[in-house]
C-alpha cells in the first residue's frame, strides 16, 4: 500500500457527456508516452470501479491511439438520463473532472508524460 501514486489529471485531461442514459468519459493524454501508459493501466475495470457509485451496468473502453485518447462508455450510468434523472448532474458533466482524481502507480518515465510541450 506504500506504492507511490500519481493522479490521472497529471498526465491527461478529460471530457464527459451523455448519450441517452449512458455516459461517455474521454481521457486525453497530454503526450504519447502518457497515452501508452494509460492504455496499460487505465482499464475499463478500473474506471468501472472508480465510478461504482453510479450503478452503471457495464463499462466499455475504446482506444484512439492517433488521438492519444481513451473513450469510456458507462452504460446506464445516469439515473435515467437527461430526461428522467433526478440527479443534479443529469448529463454526466462532472464525470470527467471526477475521474482526473483517480490515482495510478507512478511510471518510471513519468517526466515524459507531464504536460510540457505538446
Amino acid at each position: 500500500m506504500h506504492e507511490k501514486t500519481i493522479a490521472l489529471g497529471e498526465v491527461a485531461t478529460a471530457r464527459s457527456g451523455d448519450k441517452g442514459n449512458h455516459a461517455n468519459v474521454a481521457v486525453i493524454a497530454w503526450r504519447q508516452a502518457g497515452y501508452q501508459f494509460l492504455e496499460k493501466v487505465l482499464t475499463a475495470e478500473r474506471v468501472a470501479e472508480f465510478f461504482q457509485g453510479l450503478d452503471s451496468s457495464h463499462v466499455d473502453r475504446f482506444e484512439l491511439p492517433k488521438l492519444g485518447s481513451l473513450n469510456f462508455l458507462l452504460y446506464d450510468a445516469l439515473g435515467g438520463g437527461a430526461s428522467q434523472s433526478l440527479r443534479i448532474d443529469t448529463q454526466g458533466k462532472l464525470l470527467g473532472t471526477a475521474l482526473l482524481d483517480l490515482q495510478l502507480p507512478v511510471p518510471d518515465n513519468v517526466s515524459e508524460m507531464l504536460r510540457g510541450t505538446s
Partner: peptide, 18 residues
C-alpha cells in the same frame, strides 16, 4: 485552439469511435 482542445471535442459524446 490547440491540438489538445480540438482532440477534447473530437472525443466528446461519442460511443464507438470507429
Amino acid at each position: 485552439v490547440t491540438r489538445h482542445t480540438v482532440t477534447e471535442q473530437l472525443v466528446y459524446e461519442i460511443g464507438d469511435p470507429a
